[in-house]
Computed example of a mutant assay.
Amino acid sequence: MADYKKKNTVLKVILALIIVLGLTAAWFAYQAFMAPSIASDEDYFYVHSGEDYASVLKRIEDEGIVKNPELFGYAAKLMELPANIKPGRYKLSKDLNNRRFIGNMRGGYQDAVSFRFQNLRLKTDFAGLLGRNFEADSATFLGLLNNPQVAEDYGFNSDNFFSMFIPNTYEIYWNTQPKEIIDRFSKEYDKFWNEDRKAKAAALNLSPKEVSVLASIVKGEALHVDEMPEIAGLYLNRLQKGMLLQADPTVIFANNDFTIRRVLNRHLTIDNPYNTYRFKGLPPGPIMMPSIASIDAVLNYKKHDYIYMCAKDDFSGYHNFATNVADHQINARKFQKALDERNIKK
């Protein structure tokens, strides 16, 4: 009887130990795989192209990405992450567990960059924005944007290549190669220039590239989208009459001085093909990245007889338009007087 009780006690102890060990193992497995594990307040964790697992694990620990790096490392080995890690931009959230985090890096399930751009003046501005949003640096992107052969490959030249990039929002993976990103913009450009837009450009006796150059001038002049078709109509009138465009934004671009607030006679003398006070027709390329609104304003321009315009003296950003020099000079004197009153000399 005593032996029986002793054996029964031993069995109970063993059973208790099994339960404890089982619960411990279950708790450990839960913490390692299923419990929320992210400690960082960062929105994303980046795995660089060519980066090995040891480097990634060290950064996860050094940057405080997870609460328990040891448990993360244990789970990562069991899930074979060391041999299968993929570069990318991975979303972090406080409810994310190791299993999902590791699974994302193992499968390359990253979040795309919602890349939006507009109101860019120079290629350097665009390259900088690209470098801040994607893995490759700005110098790499600028090298592509300034490469004549790259421009030629897409059917452009160094002057008008900038018009291939249509401002919009694009979903692109962070570690996409720079050339592939340029390819994406080329495809979007081809989609944008559909048959309807091409037909409207042809009706103006302009190519899509020329429309974009004119649109960049319209954008440079217009502070308000609703005035763009009227401004576009004015410049089209000048082109059709063989007149100099005499667009102040082209002079500012030609002088490479974007601090100019008042275009003076000395600015007009520069010998530069972008100076439309000296050179007839359109400049060789866009003076800034044209917007969709400015391109469509050219294609759907407002028909009128205006060939002159001057900013309104109320500084509203709108313009006074004129069909003759006399009326234009009246408008110009009003604006020059307003500039003087505000002590805007340059």
Rank of each mutant, 00 (worst) to 15 (best):
N97E: 09
N97M: 04
R100K: 14
I102Y: 08
G103C: 10
R106F: 02
R106I: 08
R106G: 03
Q110T: 13
D111R: 10
A112F: 07
F115E: 03
F115I: 11
Q118P: 00
N119I: 01
R121P: 00
R121W: 07
D125L: 07
L129D: 02
L130R: 01
G131A: 10
R132V: 12
E135T: 04
T140V: 13
L145N: 03
L145K: 01
V150F: 02
D153I: 00
Y154Q: 03
G155A: 10
G155R: 04
N157K: 09
N157P: 02
S158R: 13
S158E: 10
N160V: 02
N160W: 05
F161Y: 15
F162R: 02
F162Q: 11
F162Y: 15
T169S: 12
E171I: 06
N175L: 03
T176L: 11
K179E: 15
E180K: 14
I181S: 00
I181Q: 01
D183S: 08
D183A: 10
R184T: 15
S186Q: 06
K187S: 11
Y189R: 12
D190S: 13
K191V: 15
W193G: 06
N194D: 15
E195I: 13
E195P: 02
D196H: 09
D196C: 03
K198I: 14
K209V: 08
K209A: 12
K209M: 07
E210N: 09
E210S: 09
S216L: 01
K219M: 09
K219Q: 15
E221L: 11
H224I: 05
